[in-house]
Amino acid sequence: MISLTHIALHVADLEACVGFYQQYAGMYIIRDRRPHGEKGKRIVWLAERGRETSFIMVVLPGGPKKQQADNDFSHLGFALESKQAVDDIAEQADRDGILVWPCKQEPYPVGYYCGIKDPDGNFVEFSYGQPLGPGAEDCPNMVNLK
């Protein structure tokens, strides 16, 4: 058996990125370490509550800021519990000047989504109605993959 356990992002502004994922994605710090003592670079592990042992995001400092093109749809994806939750994220992101994809309904399996830009320039999708995460049970075309 194999399991995807984490993603590591090398970011230009560690503090801003940690704050972003805490505010927008509801993640929290599960490990905050400096591998070489106080003089070492800070490395932060973030997780969603209840998923601390299944999937985490590692944020490392000192990376180059990304310049993701508008037609580059590479992104991190977070599922939300409702369309209203997606709307709420989009409204906040619009106020913060980081909304890149306004809310849109697409056919299955894409669902309802918006996209925002994290402080490092990565696109982040927030969705409802995809066949994974919260709302998956409401997908009429869900396929049993077991």
Rank of each mutant, 00 (worst) to 15 (best):
M1N: 14
M1H: 15
I2K: 15
L4N: 04
T5W: 00
H6Q: 12
H10G: 00
V11E: 10
D13M: 02
D13N: 15
L14V: 10
E15S: 09
V18P: 05
G19F: 00
Y21D: 02
Q22G: 02
Y28I: 09
R31Q: 13
R31E: 12
D32M: 11
R33H: 07
R34I: 01
R34N: 03
P35I: 01
G37F: 10
K39S: 13
R42T: 09
V44F: 10
V44M: 12
W45A: 10
L46T: 09
A47D: 02
E48K: 07
R49P: 04
R49Q: 11
T53Q: 09
T53N: 08
T53S: 11
F55K: 00
I56D: 06
V58I: 07
V58R: 04
P61Q: 05
P61K: 04
P61Y: 04
K66R: 15
A69F: 00
D70S: 14
D72R: 11
S74V: 10
S74C: 13
S74H: 09
H75A: 07
H75E: 09
H75T: 14
L76V: 06
L76E: 05
F78I: 08
F78A: 07
L80D: 05
A85Q: 02
E91H: 14
A93K: 01
A93F: 08
G97K: 06
I98G: 08
C103N: 05
Q105A: 10
Q105H: 06
E106L: 12
E106M: 14
P109A: 10
G111P: 06
G111E: 03
G115P: 01
G115F: 06
D118H: 03
D120K: 08
D120G: 13
N122V: 03
V124L: 07
L132A: 15
L132I: 10
G135H: 03
D138C: 02
L145Q: 08
L145C: 03
K146L: 09
